[in-house]
Simulated scan of single mutants.
Amino acid sequence: MMLLRQFNNRVALSSCNRRVICGKYGRLSKDHVPPQGSITVTKVEQVHLTEVFGLNANPVKGIPSTNGSKFRTICRECNMTALGENDGEIADVCKALTRQINHFFRAANSPTSHVYTPLNAVKYCRAMIGHILAATSVNECRREPCEAPYFTPLQQFVLGDDHALEDTHDIYYWFFPHKHHQSIKIFRMVNEGNECSMSILSFFPLAFLLTEKGKGIYPAGAVKLELSDKSLFVDLSALNIDFSTFPAVELKGNQFLLMAGSMSILSYPIT
């Protein structure tokens, strides 16, 4: 397993590193995952999901970061444009849903467990996917770029191609009522014979899941998001709470997960 300190960017960075979104070579820039503005940035402790998830997982002491979970894997241009110009949509969605969620749990007689907020789905997804791509080890920046059926369409979408995902990926979301943050750039799941590669970024109040097109592995309670959607509808009931931390959930029968520790990061706010 790769040491946690390797993804924590404690290595010397030079001008020959490849940026994981645009694929160009040059100096790297730090990206906050989750993005600033969508959460209250505090001191966090970071661990690999593979270090804390499993039958024999032992408690480990994570690596502290003084102002949120950060990854130095993209260039300043991508950070300021592809992500920065769209991060406001994530912040607006998070703030609008948080207000409604607070109201829902304070009101004892709410007639429905659903809340909703308008959104620009393309801008929201472009920013979320960009942060998923950025959340990885700096070692990935030292590899030669190559075409990848799973990642190339994601890169093209983040860089401005609104139609890049039409034949390759599906997107799902659900209520994520937890304090910790979860980012997994890629993992693969087998569920009763069905196999699917996926990516996820989860932080209050939503989990955001990418899957291979038509493969359909997602937790109970997930809602499919289309890029043409104008609103997000979120169910706040506790009916599917046990599945909200997917993929860190109990596996049963013919189910198993494959993931790389350096691409599977949990961060816990320290107050």
Rank of each mutant, 00 (worst) to 15 (best):
residue 43 K to R: 12
residue 25 Y to K: 05
residue 188 R to I: 04
residue 224 K to D: 01
residue 135 A to M: 06
residue 47 V to A: 01
residue 180 H to Q: 07
residue 66 T to H: 06
residue 69 S to H: 14
residue 196 C to A: 11
residue 263 M to N: 12
residue 149 P to D: 14
residue 234 V to F: 09
residue 75 C to Y: 02
residue 134 A to L: 02
residue 79 N to S: 13
residue 49 L to S: 12
residue 46 Q to M: 11
residue 204 F to N: 05
residue 252 K to A: 13
residue 244 S to W: 02
residue 25 Y to N: 08
residue 185 K to N: 12
residue 166 E to C: 07
residue 232 L to P: 14
residue 223 V to H: 14
residue 53 F to G: 02
residue 136 T to R: 14
residue 229 D to S: 14
residue 187 F to G: 06
residue 179 K to N: 07
residue 86 N to S: 05
residue 17 N to R: 12
residue 110 S to W: 09
residue 248 A to M: 13
residue 46 Q to T: 15
residue 206 L to A: 07
residue 55 L to W: 05
residue 59 P to C: 07
residue 241 I to F: 07
residue 260 A to Y: 14
residue 126 R to V: 02
residue 244 S to A: 06
residue 214 G to L: 00
residue 96 A to S: 15
residue 20 V to D: 13
residue 32 H to D: 04
residue 19 R to N: 06
residue 233 F to N: 15
residue 84 G to T: 09
residue 60 V to L: 06
residue 93 V to G: 00
residue 69 S to Y: 07
residue 127 A to I: 08
residue 174 W to Q: 13
residue 253 G to N: 11
residue 118 P to D: 11
residue 185 K to D: 01
residue 251 L to Y: 15
residue 192 E to D: 10
residue 98 T to W: 05
residue 237 S to R: 07
residue 73 T to L: 01
residue 222 A to P: 00
residue 270 I to P: 03
residue 269 P to L: 06
residue 77 E to Y: 09
residue 16 C to D: 15
residue 231 S to A: 12
residue 131 H to P: 08
residue 121 A to N: 01
residue 23 G to F: 08
residue 105 F to I: 13
residue 49 L to V: 15
residue 96 A to P: 02
residue 189 M to P: 08
residue 195 E to G: 00
residue 224 K to Y: 08
residue 223 V to D: 09
residue 77 E to P: 10
residue 220 A to Q: 13
residue 215 K to D: 09
residue 168 T to R: 10
residue 154 L to K: 05
residue 35 P to R: 04
residue 64 P to R: 03
residue 196 C to E: 11
residue 51 E to R: 07
residue 156 Q to Y: 02
residue 98 T to M: 01
residue 34 P to Y: 08
residue 96 A to I: 01
residue 196 C to H: 04
residue 14 S to D: 14
residue 15 S to L: 09
residue 99 R to A: 01
residue 33 V to Y: 11
residue 116 Y to V: 00
residue 15 S to T: 15
residue 74 I to M: 06
residue 156 Q to S: 07
residue 2 M to H: 10
residue 101 I to S: 02
residue 162 D to R: 09
residue 208 F to A: 01
residue 136 T to N: 07
residue 251 L to I: 00
residue 204 F to K: 00
residue 54 G to R: 05
residue 266 L to G: 00
residue 89 E to H: 12
residue 180 H to V: 01
residue 59 P to H: 10
residue 144 E to S: 09
residue 231 S to H: 10
residue 112 T to Y: 06
